[in-house]
Design a binder for these strands. Structure first.
Lengths: 348, 348
DNA sequence: TTGAAAGCGCTAACAA
DNA sequence: TTGTTAGCGCTTTCAA
């Protein structure tokens, strides 16, 4: 063993073979830890590898094997806490299983989402985990990618691709049930963005209604608060306006934790106490909710389970499974924190 | 033009050439939009491409060109807001320049960081953008990767690799200056994690001291608050303990926005008003700070500039530049929000 | 302007 | 157990 590695640019398998005086196959065997290699042979080859500082060229290996060892993760925005947390978990899962992650940000643009399916990942990755927000079931089915595909989220549920999510309707139902059990009666739903009702909103709204009706309460359309966009300020404005128009509510279920923070801010500005006068319940149980003061209650999808399940399904397909799309529901819970405490405390 | 694409598994360049009755080179020319191709030829080939639904195999292209079109982004954790936001920006920058991003989470583990340099990215990516937290200058210099490398953060500044950061000492200096200008005199520094003083902390602490001395104030070691870890709870505990031990301070500069939230929570629990009794200043200007109520002031590195500069340097190297490491400082500012307002309001 | 063919570096079937 | 060699699919020099 010499002092490692000439800093030369390219050391090829062939070079190692030449130096060790063996065939490429033998070197390959050593590189792969193949069983039937005599110890002395192994040592000789390893010495050559060390001396030259040889590293296999992964691209070449890929071309030869047809396996890339990479999985694409396509999601709207990496910096939204929910997606950031999912990305982290999926990344960890990937590492555990020997894959690497290629991230594709769609930024919620239709074209970018189409591109994910259409031509972007060709031969580049072994599979794709995709959280669409714009394109739906039909289009995905039509684009028929031949790369294994697993979908996340509520936007698209084609029969041809695997899919994982939590039961949003049930979760919303349960969330409202919790608020009802705590004595809330006028429960607002801060979820809809004007002119842009997402699939998630739709299914959650259903659960919201179900729970109310079940409790003998007539859903009041005035309690479905609409915002002009997805930013914090949009949420604040929506809640503030409701407050100013004397919309009467004692709880608000929010589309995500950001909107829960928005509700907190609007309520704070209006001098309403939380949870005394108004309970606030977020969605996704992200760092936003956990780290806020007071800590915000939130519907908590089991993100680890989502990540694991998605990868399970994907790995099936990457290793040959070719059946119809499978749909999995993973667990969720409701993280009860300070903003939904049942014991009202006096205002201000 | 027939109805597009047989759903066959593999369509090769060769197949297109055969169908169009031309050579592979011609097909390749069309695929690449090469100038000198007669219109009728182009049309004929394009028809064949459409008919077969041909998509170039990127892995093969890579092997042939030696260019992968991918850049690795190695960072500790994708779900920490600062890194999430950087990842988003770098991702956008990559898209803009025609690269894709391979994300490598080191989770702050030494071995993972070593692996980034050592053998993980060989032939897989054209370059690496790496934010180390564990390994330092010397080790990076020793590992000498032959892949173009640009470093982010304060941990390592080898002479051999490019590097981008903000001037942390100056920023801390300026931050403390701002607090002083607002009349604060007992400024705490919530930055150090016991037994794990990071490079960032070190340089910021320097700026903190400089500013105090400049103002004729003797730095009080008791005002350097130490936590037991990086989590919110650790920060809360550190601040609460200081409060309980009657450490007297009227401002606290935090190592990151999470610790600023921690300070807010501890202060809130102790009934101290912010910014009335205590000003709070975070670091990184992440969504945590922007979306909290009240909005938290924060030292704001120009993340866009960091991302752009990092990519500029990297692209230089990927296209042949091979000089010594270059070091760039990018802009920062201080985002003044509600927690540092100079006008104290009454408590409670 | 288009064609032929030699790689890119590795893998794996087949031989020895 | 080790060696030979034909691909993997695309690019690109050199010729035509």
């Amino acid at each position: 063993m010499t002092t490692g590695g000439r800093s030369s640019g390219h050391v090829r398998l062939k070079d190692v073979a030449a130096l060790a005086g063996v065939s490429m196959k033998t070197v390959s065997n050593v590189v792969h830890g193949y069983q039937h290699v005599s110890p002395q042979m192994r040592e000789r080859v390893q010495a050559a590898i060390d001396e030259l500082g040889y590293r296999p060229n992964l691209t070449a290996r890929r071309l030869a094997t047809g396996r890339t060892g990479m999985v694409a993760l396509a999601l709207p925005e990496m910096d939204q806490p929910y997606f950031a947390e999912m990305a982290r978990l999926i990344g960890e899962e990937a590492t555990r299983r020997g894959y690497r992650i290629l991230v594709e940000q769609t930024l919620g643009e239709v074209e970018a989402e189409r591109a994910v399916l259409r031509d972007r990942e060709e031969g580049l990755v072994d599979g794709v985990i995709f959280h669409p927000v714009r394109i739906g079931t039909v289009e995905i089915a039509r684009l028929q990618p031949d790369t294994p595909l697993v979908l996340l989220g509520e936007a698209a549920l084609p029969l041809t691709a695997d899919h994982v999510m939590i039961d949003n309707t049930a979760a919303a139902h349960e969330a409202v049930g919790l608020l009802l059990a705590q004595g809330r009666r006028r429960i607002a739903f801060l979820a809809a963005v004007r002119g842009d009702i997402t699939a998630s909103t739709r299914v959650r709204l259903l659960g919201y209604q179900e729970a109310l009706v079940e409790a003998g309460i007539d859903p009041d359309p005035g309690l479905v608060l609409q915002s002009d966009g997805f930013a914090l300020e949009d949420g604040v404005r929506a809640v503030s306006q409701a407050l100013e128009s004397d919309v009467d509510f004692d709880a608000v279920l929010c589309r995500d934790d950001l909107f829960a923070l928005a509700a907190m801010r609007a309520l704070d500005a209006a001098g309403r106490s939380v949870p005394g006068e108004v309970a606030v319940l977020g969605w996704d149980d992200t760092a936003y909710a956990r780290n806020a003061t007071p800590p915000v209650s939130s519907v908590s999808p089991d993100k680890k389970a989502l990540a694991t399940t998605a990868f399970d399904l994907l790995e099936d397909r990457m290793t040959g499974f070719d059946g119809l799309g499978r749909h999995r529901l993973t667990a969720y819970s409701i993280a009860e924190r300070a903003t939904t405490s049942p014991a009202p405390r006096p205002a201000g």
